[in-house]
Design a protein around this nucleic acid. Structure first.
Lengths: 216, 216
DNA sequence: GTCTATAAGAGGATAGAC
DNA sequence: GTCTATCCTCTTATAGAC
């Protein structure tokens, strides 16, 4: 029994290494340009061995997405445990997290069109569960922020949610980083500022809510 | 002479048809998933014939991008001829145009990572010329809008320019359209509103320009 | 310039020995 | 589970007849 558990540990470590490589390559080149040969080479094992762990390129990508979503969910739930932070502040923190992950080159990106891949993801329990949980949190914060007067109530929560999610694949940070004129922190601040400001009510941006002061 | 010109016309019409198909397919599936076979099939000619017109898949994509950029430049220059419209209004019009083109499925998209493809584009005079001209116009409007108090001067013009450009590949409109809950006009209005509002100064959003008082 | 047919090669996936 | 060697499909690109 101990031997089995040990083997399982080794297996787990190796698969973590694989997923990390896939994550990096997905962030770097995207799904279509990432080849299984590259993954195998980077991990340092033969391609056939790789296929013993993950039966297809799609499951490989799905595993990376699951890992990302679980990281995201962990962050979201951490924010949920901060009662002194406003709903808007939590949304801002999550948006910032997405931008930081992306700018750090850790954001795996999948083609929006590949429906076969999307089907594989939708069939993955762990992926969908994490996605649902995270979306639920964000959805509640959005509604709360709207009643707080921090987000314009004219926008359907769906629109706000997608706007936040879209920061994960916003090309602006990458362009600015490629220009080598600004620091990563500066870039994140600007893009985050533009994004959040766009969601706020038009006429009464900095009005304090009854009790809470000094946000932003 | 007349015969040659006639032949040239036919050639031109055929190549326009090819580029239109490429444009549609690029908008639909993206560069990597678009195959030359598909293009040939959609145009209704053999693949070998296609290669007589365009020597590679890359030049095919480049031609579609040139066409798009020239359409964009035409729109930009049309806006430039409207003296009664503010610089901010022109930027808004261009941003709206990008969103409409994208939502209409006419926005060809290239992978941001494929450097070989990017090199081919950078080597194309017509592409670069149109890009430069359009960027110049937008750049001037951005600076003007900042002195007008319509765009927050804390943002470098570069940041504003990329934020506008990025609407061309914003995934939010597509997500909302897929939900089938909102009209295209409604979607464009929301996304445009969020984008432009994000660029405006934080504290004095709806102040008319001529005499700006209102807090700061 | 258009076609049919095919080369050339990349890349996902597998066979079978160890 | 790991390896080497291979299969097979898809895709870009070209040859050569008309």
């Amino acid at each position: 029994m101990a031997k089995l558990s040990f083997k399982e540990q080794i297996l787990r470590v190796r698969e973590d290494a694989i997923i990390a490589s896939v994550n990096r390559l997905l962030a770097d080149k995207g799904y279509d340009l990432m080849t299984v040969d590259e993954v195998a080479a980077e991990v340092g094992i033969a391609k056939a061995s790789l296929y013993k762990h993950f039966p297809s390129k799609e499951t490989l990508a799905a595993a990376a997405m699951v890992r990302l979503l679980q990281r995201a969910l962990a962050f979201v739930e951490q924010q949920a445990g901060l009662p002194e932070l406003s709903a808007f502040g939590k949304l801002r923190a999550v948006t910032r997290w997405l931008l930081e992950i992306q700018l750090a080159g850790e954001m795996p990106t999948l083609p929006a069109q590949n429906s076969s891949l999307r089907a594989a993801l939708m069939a993955d329990r762990k992926y969908m569960d994490a996605l649902m949980l995270a979306s639920d949190h964000l959805g509640h914060w959005i509604v709360q922020a709207q009643t707080d007067g921090d987000i314009d109530p004219q926008f359907p929560p769906e629109v706000v949610l997608y706007t936040v999610f879209a920061r994960a694949c916003d090309p602006v940070p990458g362009f600015l980083k490629a220009g080598e004129k600004f620091s990563d922190e500066q870039i994140v601040d600007w893009v985050l500022s533009i994004c959040m400001r766009g969601l706020q009510p038009a006429k009464a941006q900095n009005n304090a809510r009854p009790g809470k002061t000094l946000r932003d």
